[in-house]
């Protein structure tokens, strides 16, 4: 993966620069800052829970509650609480120890899915299809990803496959300009699968390494819209049997338990083989990702931590886990 540190694309002056905090700090740091408020809450409550407290039913229940508040979901929270109690039930446990165990348990689940996005450049272009529910951050993630790839010296073509939402094409075109990538687009209402097909040919023609296809956001329970998504895969397969090589799904960190359903159905219909969790710069902790990792074992490639072009970071299990558990704040009261 290209090293993106200290390198930014120059923006046109009329184009209000997307906010990116300067000086640049690591995503984990930013994530931690974003999570600070709720993490402090979490840390505080765990500390108060476990200072001079025996690990009994009530304590475990309170502990489970804390995980639930991070959106891990009842089942996952219970699973982790059970592990916590193994061999420790009835013993005195300190707050710091609990945080450490919590972070370890979460990390254990997430470690196998924390993988880099591998691009097979034998396939030229490597086709990335980006799917997900409305407003989860598909187009923005595409812009950020294109920036990463072009900086690494790859030639990228973008396909404005959201032919439904007003001004979706214009939105992607701006990201095309920002990243110096050609954008293949048609008018609103055009057939997305047909457009993807044409974009593939164009990407071959212009010698692109990577083709990234945007799609219209859709709720996973709309059978007809999901069928349209499937059609894109089918049509691309006519040109290149393995295309799309990567199907990325964006998940919004503020989403609760429904994110599990989202992954389940998008995976079935469109062959999702990688995830990106966006909006981790808010106070939502995205704990549902733990449940998703346990159930689907899909790689998580990136996390979105802001609206700026640089706000896409590799997913790191340890950082994510400790941000949730607040292990960095051991020195706090």
């Amino acid at each position: 993966m290209p090293d993106d540190a200290g390198f930014r694309l120059r923006e046109k002056p009329a184009d209000p620069a997307p906010a990116a905090p300067a000086p640049r700090i690591s995503w984990a740091e930013r994530l931690r800052q974003g999570l600070a408020r709720s993490s402090n809450q979490l840390t505080g409550s765990i500390t108060s829970l476990f200072t001079k407290r025996r690990l009994d039913e009530d304590t475990l229940q309170d502990f489970e509650d804390i995980l639930i508040q991070a959106d891990l979901g009842v089942e996952t929270a219970m699973r982790i609480t059970d592990r916590l109690s193994e061999g420790r039930y009835g013993k005195e446990v300190s707050g710091a120890e609990v945080r450490r165990i919590l972070a370890e348990e979460i990390e254990k689940t997430l470690q196998p899915v924390a993988q880099p996005l591998e691009l097979d450049l034998e396939k030229k272009p490597h086709v990335i299809l980006v799917v997900g529910v409305n407003g989860t951050g598909k187009t923005t993630t595409i812009g950020k990803l294109a920036a990463k790839l072009t900086r690494g010296g790859l030639k990228v073509t973008l396909c404005a496959g959201d032919t439904f939402r007003a001004a979706a094409v214009e939105q992607l075109k701006i990201w095309g300009e920002r990243t110096g990538s050609e954008v293949i687009a048609k008018q609103i209402g055009a057939d997305a699968a047909g457009l993807a097909f044409e974009a593939y040919d164009r990407a071959v023609e212009n010698d692109s390494d990577v083709l990234i296809i945007d799609t219209a956001g859709r709720l996973q329970n709309k059978a007809e819209l999901m069928a349209e998504l499937e059609k894109i895969n089918r049509v691309l397969g006519k040109r290149e049997p393995d295309a799309p090589h990567t199907v990325l799904q964006t998940l919004d960190a503020t989403t609760g338990q429904n994110a599990l359903n989202q992954v389940e159905i998008f995976r079935n219909v469109s062959g999702v083989n990688g995830l990106v969790m966006t909006k981790l710069d808010g106070t939502a902790r995205g704990g549902i990702l733990v449940a998703i990792a346990a159930k689907h074992r899909l790689p998580v490639y990136f996390v979105g931590v802001g609206e700026g072009i640089d706000d896409l970071e590799p997913f790191k299990a340890k950082d994510f886990a400790s941000a949730i558990a607040g292990t960095e704040a051991v020195s706090a009261p």
Binding site: R165, A166, A167, W175
Partner: peptide, 17 residues
């Protein structure tokens, strides 16, 4: 919304629709 690319354009199109 002067931040998200084409956000103003989006509302304009919705107005036309």
């Amino acid at each position: 919304d002067t931040r998200r690319p084409a956000a103003q354009e989006q509302l304009k199109v919705l107005g036309e629709q």
